[in-house]
Design a protein around this nucleic acid. Sequence first.
DNA 1: TTTATATATGAACAACCATTCATATGATAA
DNA 2: TTATCATATGAATGGTTGTTCATATATAAA
Lengths: 122, 122
Amino acid sequence: MQEHEHDRCEEQCIHPEVIESVRREMLGAVPADELAQLFKVLGDNTRIRILDALFRSELCVCDLTTLLGMNQSAVSHQLRVLRDARIVKSKKQGKNVLYSLDDEHISELVRMGSEHVRELRR
Amino acid sequence: MQEHEHDRCEEQCIHPEVIESVRREMLGAVPADELAQLFKVLGDNTRIRILDALFRSELCVCDLTTLLGMNQSAVSHQLRVLRDARIVKSKKQGKNVLYSLDDEHISELVRMGSEHVRELRR
DNA sequence: TTTATATATGAACAACCATTCATATGATAA
DNA sequence: TTATCATATGAATGGTTGTTCATATATAAA
């Protein structure tokens, strides 16, 4: 068992009431985890490019492979991550599988994120 | 040099014009990278909880350490990641360093993400 | 049936990342 | 000055993750 008394700031920091009020309002462990998981899925260059492409049009894996200029296997693996997160959906059409965005929240998130990034550049 | 002809679907997939039009509209490599980087920073449980806490109130490192119930060093390392991404800002006050959100876009992103996660749960 | 095409997936590997430990820096108090 | 407190940081480490390769599955055409 370890003593952590020295890890805590007693009177030097902001008053304990602030800490308590923040603690009451804070996100629970589960929602925070799910939120972080959502952003983690969005936090990859390949997946962002896939979503950006699907935002313009429904596309099959082969189209995405061409557009991204990368391995078909890599694209499929990332599509699976997006499918598992219910960010994209797929439907079979003959030999192909057509992918599209599953949720309008996601395009909004990408739009807002882009705006933020653009403003940071100024 | 490798032949990738067999990686491309010729006539079976969606027409080439669709691919061309999507290619013209798509995000450039640099914006896509920056966007993915932003989401990557948001895609961590500890950092989300830090942002959620700072959304409620300006706090010092010590307060955050108490609120998150984790190592001071770990909190400081994550604060650095958030500072580098210009998501939080800091100001010195005596022995303490007070952190706060640097941008209102971020709280909007967190709010929208939370909403999405909540709806997925239904 | 056999052949070709589109997609999915498991395993392996390299690169990345969050945390911990130890220590350094910087500020206040004595 | 010295001692103490709050924060920052470098190095090491264990765990995660994106890509590649090889292969499996599934559909369509011959």
